[in-house]
Structures are given as C-alpha cells and as structure tokens.
C-alpha cells in the first residue's frame, strides 16, 4: 500500500547553549492508510519530535520526509501549511482550542481556511460534533466544557478537512481514566472509519489499542511490533 508519509533516516538535532541535543537519530518509518500506530517510550526519547516531524510542523536536520511521495523539505512554508490543513489532523494533550470561539467555531476554523462554503462548513461541523457526541455543546466556549469535551472538540477540529493522517500527542494526558477511555474509543472509531492514526502516549491502555507499536529510546526506534 502506498504510504501516506514516509520518514527516511531522519534525524533532528536541537542546538542548545549547553551543546546540541539529538532528539531523533536515523529514524525510518512508513505510515499507510488504515494504520493505527502507537508510539511509546520514556520522557525525552523523541516521541513528540517524531510526531512534529511527521506532521510537518518541524523539519528534520537530516534525512528525508516524504508525504505522498513529495519531499516535505523542498516545500515552502505556505505549501507545508496547506499540506497540514488538508492532509493532517492534530490533537494535543492540552487541547489548544481557541478560547474566544465556540466549539462549533473551533471546528469550523480549518474548514474556512480551506475555503469550504459556509453552508458546507456548518453541515460538516454539526456532523463532526455529533460524531464526537457534542452536538448539544456546539455553542459553548471551551471554558464551559470539561477536559474530555474539549479534547473531543479538538478531535472534531482535527477531522474537519477529512485528513488522511491524524496525529495525537498524549491525547489523554490531561484527562481522568474514564474520560481517557472515551477518547481512546473515539480514536478507535476514527481508525475504523479509515483514518490513519498515530498516537504518542504514556498510557498503556491507549497504546494497547494500536495495531502497531513503536518503542523509542534516546531518539531511536528500538522496537516495532505489529499487534
């Protein structure tokens, strides 16, 4: 199957005052449609950096990242933005919803950026909020939602432009166990509906749901196991 994204020997080195820190070392990885990949490992092992590079918000210091066979390193900033907008969905541990927008407006934002007509945006937004079980909270602002609800809105936002790849960085990190379970179930459902999902997590319960599990240490993939 043609990979959505393919990392070829990528490394990422951060220059620091005390000396360079290598967050990724020679990582190669391929993610295809229908994949459900869990990334685990101790703190500071490079999980989030890998996710950022795969999500085109960071560029590798060396190696090559191909997205649908296009070298991401050769793309201009605007083209990378467009790629993220249309092909990639992000879910973060701390949700990062815009506080002045309602749940519906947060979900509508990437669609508007992609140029979707208003009626289509409204329809899609309500569809997504229903999908995550929050249609009744469409007009609520993030400050009026619980942590689990905010994360579900963030997932709806990530799905707004029907991305092929969903990247989730510790999506249950700020949630209690019960709410985390709900989010994990939602990710399962997304995967079942055809979206490739990559989840960085410390939570064994979440990791256990992935079809492939990547273990990282010191910036390297030390183990990759299908489940």
């Amino acid at each position: 199957m043609t990979p959505i994204v393919e990392a070829r020997s990528i490394s990422r080195v951060f220059p620091m005052p005390a000396g360079p820190v290598t967050a990724l070392r020679d990582v190669s990885l391929s993610i295809a449609a229908g994949d459900y990949l869990g990334v685990v490992g101790p703190s500071g092992c490079g999980k989030s950096t890998l996710l950022h590079v795969l999500g085109c918000v960071d560029v590798p210091t060396s190696g090559m990242l191909l997205f649908h066979d296009r070298d991401v390193g050769s793309l201009a900033d605007t083209e990378r933005s467009r790629l993220r907008l249309r092909e990639i969905g992000f879910v973060f541990q701390r949700f990062f919803l815009l506080p002045m927008l309602t749940a519906a407006e947060n979900v509508e934002l990437p669609q508007a950026e992609a140029g979707a007509p208003r009626a289509e945006r409204r329809r899609r937004t309500m569809e997504l909020l229903e999908y995550v079980g929050l249609a009744a909270r469409a007009d609520h602002r993030p400050s009026e939602l619980s942590g689990g609800e905010m994360q579900r809105v963030a997932i709806a936002r990530a799905l707004a432009n029907r991305p092929r790849l969903l990247l989730a960085d510790e999506p249950t990190g700020e949630l209690d166990q019960g709410t985390g379970e709900q989010i994990a179930t939602l990710l399962d459902r997304l995967h079942a509906d055809g979206t490739a999902v990559v989840v960085v997590t410390h939570d064994p319960a979440i990791a256990g749901r992935a079809r492939r599990l990547l273990r990282m240490r010191d910036g390297r993939i030390v183990d990759e196991a299908p489940r």
Binding site: R82, R84, L85, F90, F96, L98, P110, N161
Partner: peptide, 18 residues
C-alpha cells in the same frame, strides 16, 4: 498568553500570513 493556541493555528494549517 496564547502562544499555544497560535502555534496550534499554524499546526492545523493556517498560514503565517493569516
């Protein structure tokens, strides 16, 4: 105060100019 949200806007595909 909203650096996280701004970075998220960029991450979800809003251009720098926007």
């Amino acid at each position: 105060q909203h650096l996280g949200e701004i970075a998220t806007l960029r991450a979800i595909g809003l251009t720098r100019r926007r």
